[in-house]
Design a protein around this nucleic acid. Structure first.
Lengths: 183, 183
DNA sequence: CTACACATGTAAACGGTTACATGATTAT
DNA sequence: ATAATCATGTAACCGTTTACATGTGTAG
């Protein structure tokens, strides 16, 4: 499976409802695995039925009751099993890259506009991830933090996401430059 | 759709059989969109039935007859339409990143082994892409080449792939370092 | 009174992966 | 002999996306 393990991993940061998980998948976790809210809700139910997570209802004042989940022992075991299995190669799928590949056969202006949009997205996601990383470090220096024995997993994963976004930004700017120079 | 446009874009590099396209999807194009050979064959048939590509049989001596394809006018139009449409966000899906996210809850030794493997893969893919880029430049300097009016699309796309692989390599090495330091 | 955040789903359609299937030629 | 490369598919299954569906509370 797939999303299953991303959800289990995300729940290591503490119990969460479907809605809250959705937000984790928007900030940080989404850099490693994206998912639509519907899929998250569906997966939580599947995981609960499989006994890998346990949910409890939390009534709230002025807001709908929510159900929050934590991994069970079996859930931790499943995550450990998954992590020990050999990883299959990463899948990249990006419309924009396909469009740029076809750059010489299609309208340049629209492509440039889309590259600008992507550049803006990457810039803001990089900034967001910077904040996430800062919060995780909680005042410490990076080297110091990573040398300590705290939870480094999310930090390393977000670092990768941050590198990716920055790289994307640089590449977009370069591609825009090249395409513009060609009129 | 999805793979459809990646195949059309790949066919801009010249007519190809399913088998040859499969190799393009391994070298270069795979960095933007990966696909199994079966899917490529299936997609070629679908595209032909839709009139977006045209195939012809090429008998060969000492080897099975192959069918090579080129985009039709309708195919070029479809590619142009696709490129002008707003791109949906890129999808990243990587088991290894999910595992690293869960690093504090799972076996470190296996994770380190997998990171080493991924590092080796990225190193060799980066080297492969360097050769592809060199071949595309065909002796010219990068700035010179990109300033010219030649086919820059594949070059820009492969550049992105190369950046990605190098970044992945650096990140893997850093993650290994951090996880090893924690014993 | 409009929009946004909270909160959660179902159902159908689509796209992609995995397992299975075949067979020739060339290089080691 | 054995493996690698060339060459092409089908069928079943799984995972993801899209469209549809509902309702409350809070902020501007």
């Amino acid at each position: 499976m797939a999303l299953r393990h991303a959800v289990l991993a995300a729940l290591l940061d503490g119990e969460a409802s479907g809605y809250e998980l959705g937000k984790r998948f928007d900030r940080g976790v989404g850099e490693l695995w994206n998912a639509r809210p519907q899929q998250v809700y569906a997966e939580l139910n599947t995981l609960e039925r499989s006994g890998l997570i346990r949910g409890r209802e939390v009534p709230q004042q002025g807001r709908p009751t929510k159900r929050v989940f934590v991994p069970t022992e079996a859930g931790y075991a499943e995550l450990a099993r998954f992590a020990a299995d050999s990883a299959r190669p990463a899948a990249h799928r990006d419309d924009l890259l396909v469009k740029v590949y076809a750059a010489d056969a299609v309208d340049a202006a629209s492509l440039i506009a889309q590259l600008r949009e992507r550049a803006a997205q990457s810039r803001s996601r990089a900034a967001m991830l910077d904040k996430v990383l800062e919060r995780l470090r909680d005042g410490a220096e990076e080297t110091e933090f990573l040398g300590g024995s705290s939870r480094v997993g999310p930090y390393l994963a977000c670092m990768r996401g941050r590198m990716f976004e920055q790289d994307t930004l640089h590449w977009c700017l370069r591609a825009i430059e090249v395409l513009e120079a060609r009129g």
